[in-house]
Simulated scan of single mutants.
Amino acid sequence: MSSSQVLAVANQKGGVAKTTSVASLGAALAEQGSRVLLVDLDPQACLTFSLGIDPEDLELSVHHVLTKGLDPAEVVIETEDGVDLLPATIELARAEADLLTRTGREYVVRSAVEDLEPRGYDWILLDCPPSLGVLTVAALTAAGGVVIPLQCETLSHRGVGQLLDTVHDVRRFTNRSLEVWGVLPTLYDGRTRHARTVLETISETYDLDVLDPPIPKSIRFAEAPAAGHSILRTSRGNKGAQAYREVAASLAGRTRGA
């Protein structure tokens, strides 16, 4: 396996700030001195767009790496946020179907990660699509850990249960070393009792660590993708940006055994 720390960010429910979390954690880890690669595995290509790259302008993307065997180093793009990106385009929607009949389809992302080992990334963050299909399973098969962003506004427990079932299957069949690093509370409004209750219940129901601090709700998050940067560049002093910095520092501490 790669010497990089490979982390999947997954939740098949949309609207949980998954892509925002990948972009922000990636930028925060880069700020802290790590070499970071973000991999956009979502056919909607929101991560690619939010880092200032128009997917429609791209001739090559992660689709060609996963289905055509193209060397991922030929597709990686440097971004202004200090992170590298393996971008997605709408073509990735076909990859799910292309891979279904392919032997070893669960290992296509792992192979790409291993091919990138010479580039010396400290962190590779995988932005999973909002489904539990082939691409998410392939991402979990490639990862050492998984972080589950969870919106604190609604009791979206059932989704977490389904994802944990998938993680269990992946552990059993394709990646015994996969660990759940915890739930990342997003869109958090500490003033509401409901949001606090959601946090407590998740922790108790699934016996999962809750990554701290929760990411507060902020209009700045919506504005950042339009600017083509993460919130760490568009709104440096914002509470949300600061929360992502603290979560990134605790993730980095975990890998050092802290």
Rank of each mutant, 00 (worst) to 15 (best):
E114M: 13
E200T: 15
A142R: 07
P129Q: 08
E96K: 08
S111H: 12
T103C: 00
D127R: 13
L132F: 05
A195F: 06
L199G: 11
D165T: 15
D98I: 10
P213G: 04
E96W: 03
Y121A: 07
P118T: 07
H194I: 12
Q162Y: 10
D122N: 13
G133A: 11
I148A: 03
S111P: 00
T201M: 09
T192R: 10
L150C: 12
W181N: 09
E91W: 04
T174P: 04
C152R: 03
V170T: 11
R171M: 07
F173G: 09
K217M: 10
G159F: 01
T201D: 10
G190C: 00
R105I: 04
Y206R: 11
G182Q: 05
R94M: 06
S131I: 00
V134H: 01
G159A: 00
S156Q: 03
T201G: 06
L135M: 07
P185G: 05
E91Q: 14
G133M: 03
R196C: 02
I124T: 11
E114R: 14
V109Q: 06
V170H: 08
V146M: 03
L178D: 09
I90H: 09
L140E: 02
T201Y: 04
D189I: 06
I202K: 02
A139L: 04
R110D: 02
G104H: 04
P214M: 07
L125K: 11
L163Q: 05
D169Y: 11
V160K: 01
S156E: 02
E91V: 02
L116T: 11
H194F: 14
I219M: 12
L211P: 02
H194P: 00
P149I: 00
E91K: 14
S131W: 01
E153G: 12
A138L: 05
R105V: 06
L126I: 07
T141A: 13
V108S: 10
G161Q: 12
P149Y: 00
T192M: 01
S177G: 15
G159V: 02
C128N: 08
I215S: 03
N175W: 04
T154W: 01
R119N: 10
E200C: 05
G120D: 04
G161N: 11
P213T: 07
E106Q: 13
D98G: 08
V167Q: 08
T192G: 04
A95D: 01
R158L: 13
L92Y: 06
R105H: 13
V167A: 05
D98L: 13
R193A: 12
G190L: 00
T192V: 05
T166R: 07
L126N: 08
V134G: 01
